[in-house]
Structure formats: structure tokens, C-alpha cells
Nucleic acid binder design. Structure first.
Lengths: 342, 342
DNA sequence: TTGAAAGCGCTAACAT
DNA sequence: ATGTTAGCGCTTTCAA
């Protein structure tokens, strides 16, 4: 029967109490005698009543909606963030408004949209201009930058040690006999890529690898292929490829094997980044870096909540450990000892 | 300056007009003299005013939010739907509330959540019980089922000809010399899988293929691997594998090549479904079926809008053509003519 | 504990 | 064309 949804007034009338009594029964800290409560609940049940969240929002001044900005790449290769964010947010009964931006764009427009929609806070996994960042502050909307740096103070930040983990990558490579790495990145506008690159360059010097040759390309499969092809004239001058994304790594491997007739990992070792599903395919078994996205997003939300409670507090900066996953695109210890003795 | 956001009253006062004048200026069909309009716009600009969508929703009785239910599989392998839906919805200034359900679950809970949030309509790409379907109707919330069937009348439906396209798949396979196909599906609770299976079975009879052996497994890479392994004792009895998803197809290919020492496509041809990114990797070059997700979602939204306009109208059922994409896991015409002559 | 009443910020019918 | 007013469905003081 599709008549209009019941309101708290309908429930009140049926239960023979005031509307505010109904409101109290449905409020976490409402006080009501168990007698009223029972009457109200019965009436509510009979009418199929549930409080209207929109009216609630208007009254409370909080929309109970969170905003999430992710790049298309993230959305495609990390099923986790969306799902994680959704789970955490839903748990408290809130909703999630998602905006997807192209990898090459910043999140400014997306954030502005979310601000217009009056979200309570924003998680942003895309770069953001100083202006857009300030707009959040002016609107008193907590902003948490995920795997990006904040353009101005007062903004919480959380992410993986994108540069730091490269030390481990460099050590692994050195240990497995590689000496001359190439880095495939996504360009200077891609923050995580820049960090990963910097990390590799610094670590290479420390562990004794040659200074990496750095190449930029699209952050995807085709980008990896294109970059690798452009390296064809240099075959023999490098023995490892480190990429800023798994998609690029997989593209690189395909070209290495099928077009350049090189063996992975015997001739060239490859390390990716992100641990996407395809990296586990038997055809690749890609050595890569996995970020703990679930923790990142869960804690990002905690940060936002705490900021909402005390908007004036100093910004926090959290780093969630990531992990190097060894698979078959780096040589096994046994093989590498052969390499090293030769 | 983080003072409270300006309301239409603030603007009205500053502009020296009534609050309703402000409302009119910001309404699509509001009438206002260009003089008032100018004053209002100036004041609004000065105060950084934008209408509060929550108050608007309460007043209008429409939340201007749409609900989307997708399975984890879809969200992971189809970046398109979310992005498409988002684009189409955003264009009209609305928001999108997404719910992700596990492949094995139905969308009932997700839909109920969305109903509580008072979305204006729901796009559901997960199966839905009769009950949940009725709850949408009772709440006067248009529901569009995407690539699933509706459990009761009055519900719009849109999707690909999941069974129909299998005729083309069967013909291709026959043409390329295959005679004995195996079908790898996702189980009876997976509607698209069931349809694709039915389509293949029917088409096989028509074009002269042997009745397909049907196997169910998880809808993903590991499922494809497991299913293929279980077929090891039957090597030689089949010459084609058709799967309900690309992920399964890729898993099957890896086992075929690496564990069963079979050649794809020479010994066994493989056809997947969905055209996921990994299918384009050079290591696979998977022949597959592509659905026009963008059109599906765009038109689904149109359906929902039209239903909202006239909730009583009869249900519509739209089919958006899909397309068989031939790549390298089916033999090329040249090879197959060899096959056929031998 | 309970009820009455004043908002929250907007839209829309009504009157001018 | 513009202003006045009554909602939309809640939460939350304030009294009782």
C-alpha cells in the first residue's frame, strides 16, 4: 500500500504521546520511560516508521554524509578503498558520496561539489590545490588527504611510506643481483609516483645500485608498454625495472618478454606497486608493494571524526606501513646467488 | 573566515529583498525582474551563498539522491558503471549513494539502507528478493534492475542480451573448428551466469556443437583455475571453454597453459565475458563479450526518471546490444580452416 | 519524564 | 514581479 511514509507525528498520535516523545525514543540519548518507549515503538512498528534523515540533517546541521574523492586509477585497481570507506561509514549510519576524478585532474572540482552537498567531512585521494583546500577550512569541513600532501597547514594526512618502502625494494634488487634499475613513473603531477621515484633514487645510492634511469608515462598498462618500448635501444644497460604502479609493471613485462625477447626475472627483474589482482595471475606473479588500504581508510575516517569534534586542533600525519611482496618477477635467492658468483 | 554559511535570509537582507525573492532567483523556474536578480546575485556572491540542498530536499520531498547497488565483482571489473552513473547523475546536480554487496549476497539489505536514506530511485545490479522489491514499490521509489530480472511486475529492467549473444559465441567457435565446449559459470544464484549458460546450451544445439559440459565455480580468477583443474581428467574431451566472466577465463587459461600443458587457442579455445582490462594484456588477448555499460546506466537513469514522473506506468524492459570481441584465444580464420581440413 | 514551541533553510501557494 | 506565510519532519530548549 503506497501511501505516504509515516512521520513522527503519526506515530505520536497513534501512541497517544507527543511528537517530541517519539523523537526521544529514536534518539541515542533521549530519555523516555520504558512505558512510553514501548508504546512508541509499537506504534512506529505498526506504521513502518523510520526517522527521516533529511529532516534530521536539517535540524542537526550535519548531513551525516561523508565525501570521498578518488582517481579513476584507484577506483579501478583498488576495490578496497571504496568498500572499506563504505563499510566504516555505514557502520555509524552515515552515507558516502563518491567522486571519481581522472588521474590527470586534481580533485578541486570534486571537492567543491561535495562542499555544496554539505558533506560532514572529505577524504581526498587526489591532489588538491591550495584554494580548494582552504575552501574546506572556511566551510569547517574536515579534510583528510590520503597518500597526498596537504597544500596548507591544519590538514590531516595519512598514507603509506611511499618513499620509505623503496629502500626495501632497492635492497631486494641488490640482493638478487640487480645493479642498474630503471624507474617507470606517472609524471610529476602524480604525487605517489614522485615519492616512489625519490625513494628509489635515494635508496639506490645507499645500497649500491646505479642511479636509476627515470621515465614517465601514463600510469596504466599501455603506459608501461610504451615506456618499455622506448627503452629498446638500451637493452643490456639495465637489469631491473621498478614501476610506480602494477599496471605499468605488467605492461613492461609483456613488452620485455614478447617484443624484446628478454626473460623476466632472469634478464630483467621487475617490481611493481599496488598489488592489484592481475599481479597475482600466474602469467606474471609480480613482485610488488602492498598498501594497507583498509587501515588507511579506517583511520582516515577516525581522523576526520576527531577533527570534526575539535576543528581547531593541530593537523596529524599518519603513516601506515606497507609491505613488499615477493613473487616471481624478482629472482629467487637461489638463482641470485648464482648470478652473484658469476 | 570560518563563520557560519550564509542563508537565503542573509542574502535577502543584504540585497534588500524578501527571502522568497532569493529563492526564486535560485530556482530554475523562478520569476524575478532582472533588477532583483542582479541585486540578489551580487549579495549571494558577496556572502558566498549557495542554497542548502538539505533544506531543499526537506521542502521538496525529494532527496535528489540516487541509490546504486553493485556487486563487488562489478565494482572491481567495471570501472565504467560507477563512473557512468556518477556522471549522468551529477549532470542533473544529484548525488549518488553507492552500496557494494558481495557477489554471493542479494541486494536486499543494500536496498533497504538506500530506502532509509530516502533516495529518489534505485539502480540495482544485484539480485533482489520479492520482498525487497515490493518495499521499493511501497515507498514509491522507482527501481531499475540492471542485468537481472525483476521479481515482480511493475519494475523496469535493462541489460544486455546475455543469452542471445551466446549464439554468436557458439557460431564463432563452430566456425573456428571447435566442437565440444565447456561452460564455466558462477552458480545458479548468479543471474547473468545462468542466462549466459542457457544461451550457450541452446545455441550449441542450433549450430552443431556438442551439448556443453557445465561447471560452476567462484566468479573470479581462482574460481576459473579451480574449475579448470577439476577438468584435468577430461583433457581431450573438450576443445573450447566459455566462461561467464573474464576473470574465470583468465584463470582457466593459466591452468590450461601452465598446468595442463595445453595450447590456447590451438588445443583449447577460450571465450570470456565482460571485457575487463586484463583481457587486453598481451599474455592473454582474450576473446570476450563487451557490454555497453555506459549506455545501460545512462538509460537506466532515464527509466528511473520517467518512472518517477509517472509511478503508475507499466514496466519497461530494455535490451542494450553487446558485442563479441575477437582476440587471440580463439583461432584466427586462417588457422581454423587448417583445423577443419585436417 | 513529558509536552509545547521554536527553530533548521528552503519551496510554493497565496495575496498584493 | 514581489512579499507573506505556511509547511517539510525532525531536534532541542524550556516549562510543567
Amino acid at each position: 500500500m503506497s501511501r505516504k511514509r509515516a512521520t513522527s507525528y503519526d506515530v505520536a498520535r497513534l501512541a497517544g504521546v507527543s511528537q517530541s516523545a517519539v523523537s526521544r525514543v529514536f534518539s541515542p540519548n533521549g530519555s523516555a520511560s520504558s512505558k512510553t518507549r514501548k508504546k512508541v515503538l509499537a506504534a512506529a512498528d505498526e506504521l513502518g516508521f523510520a526517522p527521516n534523515p533529511i529532516a534530521k540533517s536539517l535540524s542537526l546541521g550535519r548531513s551525516r554524509m561523508a565525501g570521498l574523492v578518488v582517481t579513476q586509477y584507484t577506483q579501478q585497481n583498488y576495490p578496497i578503498p571504496l568498500k572499506s570507506a563504505l563499510d566504516v561509514i555505514s557502520k555509524s549510519g552515515d552515507s558516502l558520496l563518491t567522486q571519481i576524478v581522472d588521474a590527470s585532474d586534481d580533485g578541486d572540482d570534486a571537492v567543491r561539489q561535495l562542499l555544496l552537498k554539505r558533506v560532514d567531512f572529505i577524504l581526498c585521494a587526489a591532489s588538491l590545490s591550495w584554494n580548494a583546500t582552504m575552501e574546506c577550512r572556511d566551510a569547517n569541513v574536515p579534510l583528510v588527504m590520503i597518500n597526498r600532501r596537504a597544500e596548507c597547514p591544519g590538514v590531516d594526512t595519512i598514507g603509506s611510506p611511499n618513499a620509505g618502502i623503496m629502500k626495501e625494494v632497492a635492497e631486494l634488487l641488490y640482493d638478487r643481483g640487480a645493479r642498474a634499475p630503471v624507474f617507470l613513473g606517472g609524471g610529476v603531477r602524480n604525487w605517489v609516483s614522485v615519492e616512489r621515484c625519490r625513494g628509489l633514487v635515494e635508496a639506490s645510492a645507499q645500497v649500491g645500485l646505479a642511479p636509476p634511469v627515470v621515465l614517465d608515462a601514463d600510469f596504466n598498462y599501455d603506459g608501461g608498454r610504451a615506456a618499455m618500448r622506448s627503452l629498446a635501444p638500451c637493452i643490456g644497460t639495465f637489469d631491473a625495472v621498478v614501476t610506480a604502479s602494477d599496471a605499468m609493471a605488467i605492461g613492461a613485462i609483456d613488452v620485455l618478454r614478447q617484443e624484446l625477447a628478454l626473460k623476466v626475472p632472469e634478464d630483467v627483474q621487475v617490481v611493481g606497486h599496488d598489488d592489484v589482482e592481475a599481479g597475482r595471475f600466474q602469467a606474471y606473479r609480480l613482485t610488488t608493494v602492498r598498501q594497507d588500504m583498509h587501515t588507511i581508510f579506517s583511520r582516515a575516517i577516525e581522523l576526520a571524526f576527531s577533527k570534526a569534534r575539535d576543528f581547531g586542533r593541530k593537523e596529524e600525519s599518519i603513516i601506515v606501513q606497507n609491505k613488499l611482496i615477493e613473487r616471481a618477477t624478482t629472482t629467487s635467492p637461489a638463482d641470485s646467488s648464482n648470478n652473484r658468483t658469476r
